[in-house]
Computed example of a mutant assay.
Amino acid sequence: MAFTNKDAAIVLGMVARGDKRHDIAAWYGENQARIAEVEQGQYGNLVAAPANELPPKGAPGPKGRRLRSKVTKAVEALEKGETAAALQILRDALTDFAKNEA
C-alpha cells in the first residue's frame, strides 16, 4: 500500500508524539519499512499532522479486540430491546478505544 500525503502526515505526527514504530505500522497494516520511508522524506517535505488528527496511541490489536467484544454486547442488548443499555455500551467502547496507551 502506498501512503497518501495525508497518511504520511499522520505517520509523522505519530512519530513526533513518540509512538512505537511497530504500532504506527500496525495502524496501517504495513511494515516498519514504510514508516521509515515516510521519516526519510520519501513522501515529500510534509508537515506532521496535529494531535487532534492522530489515532489513539497504542497498538490497534488490543483496542480492536476490546471494541469488538463491546460491540457484541451492544448487539445482544439491542436484540433484547435494551436500546439505552446498548447505546451506553457503544459510548463506553468508543471512549475506551480513544484512550492513549503506551
Rank of each mutant, 00 (worst) to 15 (best):
I89K: 03
N52S: 10
A2C: 11
Q32W: 04
E79P: 12
T95W: 10
Q32G: 04
A74M: 00
G13I: 03
R17P: 00
F3I: 06
L87S: 12
N31D: 15
G41M: 02
I10V: 09
H22D: 15
D92S: 11
I10F: 01
A86E: 05
I89F: 07
L87H: 12
D92E: 10
N52W: 15
A36C: 13
D96K: 05
A49I: 05
G81H: 04
G64P: 05
Y28V: 03
A77E: 07
L12A: 02
L90K: 08
G58D: 05
I24F: 03
R65Q: 11
A36I: 09
A84H: 13
A9G: 10
Q42W: 07
H22V: 12
E79L: 15
R17E: 05
W27R: 09
A77Y: 04
R68I: 13
L12K: 01
L12S: 00
A36S: 14
I10C: 04
T72G: 11
A25W: 01
G13S: 05
E79F: 07
K70N: 15
A59K: 15
T4M: 06
A48L: 00
A93L: 03
K99H: 11
Q40K: 13
R66C: 06
T83C: 10
A2S: 14
W27N: 05
N31M: 07
F97K: 09
K20V: 05
F3K: 05
P55C: 02
L87T: 09
K57G: 06
I24Y: 02
P60W: 15
P56S: 05
G64C: 14
E37I: 02
K80M: 13
P55A: 03
T72E: 14
N52Y: 15
L87M: 10
A98N: 13
R65Y: 12
G64Q: 13
D19E: 12
A25S: 08
L90R: 08
L78N: 05
N5P: 07
E53C: 03
V75Y: 13
K57R: 13
R68F: 12
P62M: 11
D23I: 04
E76L: 08
E79S: 06
L78P: 01
L78R: 08
R91H: 09
I10D: 01
K80R: 14
K6R: 10
F97G: 08
G58N: 05
N45V: 06
L90W: 06
N45W: 06
A36W: 11
T4C: 06
G61K: 14
A102I: 15
A25H: 07
V47F: 04
L94R: 12
A93C: 06
N31H: 12
V38S: 00
H22C: 12
N45H: 10
T95Q: 10
E37N: 08
E101N: 11
A33H: 08
D7Y: 01
A98W: 08
A8E: 01
I10A: 03
G81F: 02
N52M: 09
